[in-house]
Amino acid sequence: MLEHEYTLLGGVSRLKIGRYLALISAAVSGFIVFLLLSSVDLAQRLGIAASIPPSVLSFVGAGTVFTALSWILNRYAWRWKFINSLLQIPDLAGSWSCTGTTMATSSNQSFDWSGEIVIIQTWDKIRVRLKTATSASNSRSAALIKDEADGWRLFYNYRNEPNIDQSDLSAHRGFSEILFDPDLRGGSGEYFNGHGRYTFGKMSLERR
């Protein structure tokens, strides 16, 4: 699993969300326990022998409910329109068509390239994978920053591995910054390579 945590600046603090989840979990757990005990009490009044093993009550405890709610939020609920508007996290997951231009330097010629960016994202983890005809890269760390003037910016560093038949290319590390359009249908950015390939350029994205 190559997904990694990412920093969120400008959205709602994950620590604050954790506190809210804890309060909600305690309330939900208490309500479930109340319903169970009320059901047993009603059954006994009707002359039905009923009881609840302690293990059942522990199973619906606040800790279990918190774990379940956290998993649902992390995998699914953060994308739901109402919750997403509260969390203020852009949903970038999916496939993006990418075109780029590597700028000319004293040691490199300018050239155009194209590829596909796949972003895998949950509430607390992300992975940015770029695949071109000659190489592939995966993000190692990332940050999302809400720009009140322009939209969401994604910063990430990556490691690039050339295809086995590209003997003239070297593995390298780099850094990229992408500014996404407000509707999250496209974006533009820049990249800077080092530690093996000293190039830089610009790129544009369009959601597929």
Results as ranks from 00 to 15, higher is better:
residue 158 Y to L: 01
residue 201 G to V: 01
residue 122 T to C: 01
residue 138 N to I: 13
residue 149 A to M: 11
residue 147 D to H: 07
residue 127 R to C: 09
residue 119 I to R: 00
residue 148 E to R: 11
residue 159 R to E: 11
residue 126 I to K: 00
residue 155 F to S: 11
residue 194 G to Q: 11
residue 191 Y to V: 00
residue 192 F to D: 06
residue 156 Y to G: 01
residue 171 A to N: 05
residue 184 L to F: 05
residue 123 W to G: 00
residue 141 S to L: 11
residue 191 Y to F: 14
residue 165 D to P: 03
residue 168 D to F: 10
residue 162 P to V: 02
residue 150 D to V: 10
residue 175 F to T: 08
residue 181 D to S: 15
residue 157 N to M: 11
residue 168 D to P: 02
residue 179 L to Y: 04
residue 193 N to F: 06
residue 188 S to C: 09
residue 155 F to H: 08
residue 141 S to R: 12
residue 189 G to V: 09
residue 163 N to T: 05
residue 146 K to Y: 14
residue 175 F to R: 07
residue 134 T to H: 03
residue 131 K to T: 10
residue 183 D to T: 14
residue 203 M to I: 14
residue 178 I to F: 06
residue 178 I to W: 06
residue 123 W to P: 02
residue 125 K to C: 03
residue 146 K to H: 14
residue 153 R to S: 08
residue 124 D to T: 07
residue 139 S to T: 07
residue 112 D to K: 09
residue 135 S to E: 10
residue 192 F to T: 11
residue 151 G to W: 05
residue 113 W to G: 01
residue 188 S to P: 05
residue 175 F to D: 05
residue 159 R to T: 13
residue 199 T to W: 00
residue 194 G to V: 08
residue 152 W to R: 05
residue 178 I to G: 02
residue 137 S to W: 03
residue 126 I to W: 01
residue 120 I to L: 15
residue 167 S to R: 15
residue 136 A to K: 11
residue 155 F to I: 14
residue 135 S to G: 03
residue 157 N to Y: 06
residue 115 G to R: 01
residue 119 I to M: 00
residue 183 D to H: 12
residue 116 E to Q: 15
residue 136 A to D: 08
residue 198 Y to I: 12
residue 168 D to V: 10
residue 116 E to C: 12
residue 165 D to E: 14
residue 183 D to M: 09
residue 114 S to R: 13
residue 143 A to S: 13
residue 153 R to Y: 11
residue 136 A to W: 03
residue 153 R to D: 11
residue 130 L to H: 13
residue 191 Y to H: 05
residue 187 G to P: 04
residue 154 L to P: 02
residue 127 R to W: 11
residue 189 G to A: 06
residue 198 Y to W: 13
residue 134 T to N: 08
residue 152 W to E: 06
residue 173 R to Y: 10
residue 116 E to I: 09
residue 117 I to V: 13
residue 124 D to S: 07
residue 111 F to R: 01
residue 182 P to T: 07
residue 136 A to T: 14
residue 119 I to N: 02
residue 186 G to I: 10
residue 147 D to P: 10
residue 175 F to H: 10
residue 161 E to A: 08
residue 149 A to T: 15
residue 125 K to V: 10
residue 126 I to G: 01
residue 159 R to W: 08
residue 114 S to T: 15
residue 172 H to K: 04
residue 137 S to D: 04
residue 146 K to R: 15
residue 168 D to L: 12
residue 119 I to Y: 02
residue 122 T to H: 00
residue 172 H to S: 01
residue 156 Y to Q: 03
residue 169 L to Y: 00
residue 115 G to L: 02
residue 178 I to Q: 06
residue 182 P to F: 06
residue 168 D to K: 11
residue 157 N to E: 11
residue 143 A to T: 13
residue 120 I to W: 13
residue 112 D to F: 06
residue 173 R to H: 08
residue 143 A to H: 05
residue 182 P to S: 06
residue 202 K to I: 14
residue 112 D to A: 09
residue 122 T to Q: 00
residue 140 R to S: 12
